[in-house]
Design a protein around this nucleic acid. Structure first.
Lengths: 227, 227
DNA sequence: GCACGCCAGATTGTATACGAAATTGGATGG
DNA sequence: CCATCCAATTTCGTATACAATCTGGCGTGC
């Protein structure tokens, strides 16, 4: 259905790196050297470079001219903006999804949650976070909104970076309960409820972050320390 | 104010090509040969390729493995999805913008409209369409939502392709009147009205398109002419 | 002792070269 | 006359080589 012609090597590498960022195995600010990336995957710099550019387009890495590629460090402001965008897109999409939801879709969402719990049991919180992000993307897919799905995927990926930087509570899985409540709304095909639950879920996420603009992005010190 | 390290050659070329697509100087389906693009801008295929990849990330061109780059031809379905995404993002953003709007912002939006009229007088409808798209992006900028601004810019660019493919009425500038009404709402700092006007403006846009899935993407004839 | 400038190392930006995949057109055989 | 197959061509995918730029340390001069 989709594009079709993917799976070019560079795209595969980009996906792999994105997953590593997603799962917090690569911390924000990490430098991604073209030679190193190429060496890791056994390809030349050309391919590694292409993968890094792809990630830059997704705002997961920042390219600095003649300096290199670094895992992005969203500022507190960017963090707020990402969640404001999600607040516009996701609740209405959850409503649409609720109305189109099939049994197979629900099963699939449930298995996502199960996997997530398994990851937590196995002590892989990064993987669990990744999966909980995919839950949101899956909802957009079920709503049959490919364009919105793309955007949600971008926003979820950036949210992962934001959580890595600004997460404050250690309360592990407030997430899952929200997701389970959503599933119940989906089972009832209750669009209104799904929309409302998603809205509150996103609000909870933002308030669980510490977005007073402490430190944030060392990238542009100039803006902070004017002479 | 933006990123900072742009103006790499490939980004400049990508912007230039994007503008050409935006203004309908490059029709949907046009082939963009890497060698030709490189020759036009006096750079090597490496740089041309990078620019084309950038456009592919914006979904303005479609890359087909071992086939080349073609200006995208959104299907009727994609067209609908693009406008559904816009319907979620832009009305609320127009409301925010109305509340933050300064005199300078209003003047800037007005000059956009003036330029648009001038372009029409000069018989450059493509340029006028481009400018009317920038009007929407500008609103997101005024709302101080950089993330949403990015998305709106992407959607506006794709809308330009969609209009090139599915525009049916020759009624030139129903657009401008909607934009002028929006400006009046902004002048009054009337968020509710701005939101409502934007919502209706987008609805008008969709209904002015012919999205019965006739023909759409000749790219894959195979799907249309099954044996 | 401090500041300025310069040089070496490293890393990215760009160009070119070679190999692989896919289409095109004609030749061949039925 | 049509279908099939093969090679010639085009175009892309990847690797490598060279040039430009930045970082950091060293030395000289004040």
């Amino acid at each position: 259905m989709d594009g079709s012609e993917k799976s070019i090597t560079s795209e595969r590498i980009a996906r792999d790196l994105a997953e590593a960022i997603h799962e917090h195995r690569l911390a924000p600010g990490s430098k991604l050297n073209e030679d190193e990336v190429g060496a890791v995957y056994g390809v030349s710099r050309t391919v590694a470079r292409s993968a890094l550019q792809s990630l830059a387009h997704q705002r997961l890495v920042e390219l600095r001219r003649n300096r290199g590629a670094y895992v992005a460090q969203p500022s507190a402001r960017e963090a707020r903006e990402v969640f404001e965008a999600r607040a516009l897109l996701e609740p209405r999409t959850a409503r649409s999804a609720a109305l189109r939801m099939t049994e197979a879709d629900i099963a699939r969402l449930q298995s996502h949650i199960d996997e997530e719990h398994a990851a937590i049991r196995d002590g892989r919180p990064g993987r669990a976070l990744h999966l909980s992000g995919l839950f949101h993307v899956e909802i957009a897919r079920i709503a049959e909104q490919k364009t919105i799905e793309e955007f949600v995927a971008l926003l979820v990926a950036r949210s992962s970076l934001i959580i890595a930087l600004y997460w404050q509570r250690r309360s592990a899985l407030c997430e899952s309960h929200a997701h389970e409540a959503l599933i119940r709304a989906f089972e009832a095909r209750d669009g209104d409820l799904a929309e409302e639950l998603m809205k509150n879920h996103l609000l909870d996420l933002v308030t669980s972050l510490d977005l007073r603009n402490i430190t944030s992005a060392p990238a542009s010190l100039r803006e902070v320390l004017s002479p």
